[in-house]
Design a protein around this nucleic acid. Structure first.
Lengths: 195, 195
DNA sequence: CGATGTATACCGACTAGTGAATATACACAA
DNA sequence: TTGTGTATATTCACTAGTCGGTATACATCG
């Protein structure tokens, strides 16, 4: 039985992360992951019972870093909740200029696995997106924004819409437009007794 | 040289449409498409020079039907522009309940081809999404809505956000929430001298 | 010894794409 | 009418390579 936190396992997940994000889970073979990790396929299958498991582990490893990055942008931004929300989009648009940017790994994986709704990787993605939505609703609630849950959900829709459309048009203007729409929706819910 | 509108070609595209939408372009082999169409792979390759070409033809064939369906929902809805826009989401949510529903074929294909931004199928998808955005801006403009282009873009972001999140959570509530947000954004732009 | 980890070598199934032959239909000439 | 040429359309059989996954063996270390 492999150890849950073995360094070899981490090497495999790191290699899978690089390849899966760059090429998509369907276009990357297990052989390629093993080679990228610098070991043989048999060793990979000692640590993971299937490719599907490895895909889920890849997404699981992206959960916390992704959340922290978003929260970092939110926290660092000056101004009220509207400006902080818009900062997420502004930073996203900047990140999208990077040549290695390929959208949201969670959404792309869900799209590739659309015919397998119960796939373990999709459950991981669902949990991640819920985590983000819950975190955002908490931040909005702490700032006395009205209907924080509903608003958080609308912002999530605009963020994921940006991710998707970017893969079609490759035009970051869409992300900026989504940011302005999100800021508008936030301002519409700033309550009267607000800091 | 094959004929552009040969009935055989149409049979192939129809078969490809069924399989590609149901399983995703990467999970469907050319052999499978040929068998679904009731002919041999060699015949398929007589009509299409590559699988990539066939994928582009699949999406090209979905352009007009998709636009007509959206426009039909918009036209059929009672009320002002806000209600008509919201009707698109309501109908989308209803369609998403169907067991064969697998999201937006254009977005899913773009996600699968994220590592090949210049792929012909992505160009077809980009054109389709632009067509829809332009059509919607026209409808909004005809109803004296302010900033119709900006608003159309925001609505598109909410629609495509709905498509993406649905593949993660499989919960049509997100589409309804997006519809309410879209209606809010429309109402914020209803000008004073309006019918 | 026994647990953990790694390597070589292999499996059957499937992949996109192709070579060569052939069926069909129609044009034109004897 | 009959024969020949030609373009379109289709099939069978095949290639060279990749796929996820595994059987077996061997190392290292407590």
């Amino acid at each position: 039985m492999p150890e849950a936190q073995s360094p070899t396992r981490k090497r495999i997940v790191d290699a899978a992360t690089r390849l899966f994000y760059a090429e998509g889970i369907g276009r990357v073979s297990v052989d390629a992951v093993a080679e990228e990790a610098g070991l043989t396929k048999r060793t990979l299958y000692y640590h993971f019972k299937s490719k599907d498991d490895l895909i889920a582990a890849y997404l699981d490893g992206r959960d916390q870093p992704n959340l922290k990055r978003m929260a970092g942008w939110f926290d660092a931004a000056e101004g009220g909740a509207d400006r902080k929300v818009e900062a997420i989009f502004t930073n996203l648009a900047r990140a999208a200029h990077h040549p290695k940017w390929k959208g949201c790994g969670f959404l792309r994986t869900a799209a590739e696995l659309a015919s397998m709704p119960g796939h373990p990787a999709i459950k991981v993605g669902s949990r991640h997106k819920s985590n983000f939505e819950t975190w955002l609703a908490g931040e909005l609630s702490a700032r006395n924004i009205e209907e924080p849950q509903a608003l958080a959900r609308e912002i999530v829709l605009l963020i994921d819409g940006s991710f998707s459309i970017m893969l079609i048009h490759r035009n970051p203007d869409y992300i900026e437009a989504a940011g302005r729409a999100a800021a508008t929706l936030v301002r519409a819910r700033i309550s009267s007794n607000q800091v």
